[in-house]
Design a protein around this nucleic acid. Structure first.
Lengths: 161, 161
DNA sequence: AGCCATTGCTATGGAATAGAACAATGCATG
DNA sequence: CATGCATTGTTCTATTCCATAGCAATGGCT
């Protein structure tokens, strides 16, 4: 399909125009992983900018979202869904707890586990964050070319997950 | 990986508190950045597995590809294209040079710069890597549902980069 | 009671990424 | 050609993310 190897393209046009010309990047543009990473980095970069003001990072945002929709779940459950190791999840949860955005209450029936809940401040904070994020998402959708493109992209990404 | 063990399901209490029920994840499934990250992590994970045997990481693969298609370019040029900081690029290039896959020759006309070239071993190594990667890519395309889906995905990712 | 799994946690290491600073060199302009 | 500024490769360092190992407390099963 695209196994471009070494020299090819147009043999009549041997690139003798400029010594410090643009580089040839065809070999990377066909790599799905590379393109995925570029796009993901770009989107995350925008997220970091938008949320720098409120000091919220992508992982933290998804944690708050999940707890909001699943109050009372154990740390491990939330961490597993997000594919975050239990060990690393501790720091994240403690950070959010220190900011009084969530609570760790003893889980009923299991004295080992912590049940996670958003505080009132946490819910309020999350609402604001959601609004902020919705704005960002709208920009991305506009960049993609519309809602249809967005769902198309999500469907394709789903097949890679 | 392993979900609930399915041993807590008593017919007596169906879902009063849903102790080990599936979590609600709708809030995250609509987030482009989140989905991008999941897919990218998955693809990278596969790359790492496939290339563990030959000890090649994604960044190194793209470096070799770019040098192969642009021999004699300066480090900064290659690094810039890949959005790798000059400082971090040094380690990567030195590692590949230590493995005799590439050479840093003095750039003609600029005694500060290094011109990068693949060695014969480097080209041979890259050819094998390319074959290995093409196999992986074919698997991904199959997962996506065909070549049309692949180019569609690439086009969409392009709008986010 | 005994054994194993799970939960939250600490400690630690590796890898990616970013910034500061520096010597050598290039380059432009006066 | 002298001087000031920019660039190149480099080292050092800090931060963040991610993975593993291990531990005390607890749960659950037999």
């Amino acid at each position: 399909m695209h196994a471009n190897h070494g020299k090819n393209e147009n043999p009549m046009d041997p690139d003798l125009t400029n010594p410090s010309d643009a580089l040839r990047t065809e070999s990377t543009t066909g790599i799905l992983g590379y393109r995925l990473r570029r796009a993901q980095l770009n989107v995350f970069q925008r997220f970091l900018q938008v949320f720098e003001e409120v000091r919220l990072r992508p992982a933290e945002y998804t944690i708050l979202l999940l707890i909001a929709d699943n109050p009372g779940r154990k740390q491990t459950e939330i961490a597993d869904i997000l594919s975050i190791k239990r060990a690393n999840f501790v720091t994240l949860v403690h950070g959010l707890q220190d900011r009084a955005l969530l609570e760790r209450r003893p889980a009923p029936g299991d004295r080992r586990a912590n049940a996670l809940y958003l505080t009132a401040a946490g819910m309020q904070f999350l609402d604001a964050a959601r609004a902020r994020h919705d704005d960002m998402e709208r920009q991305l959708v506009a960049q993609l070319g519309g809602e249809a493109s967005r769902s198309q992209l999500l469907a394709l990404l789903d097949r890679l997950s």
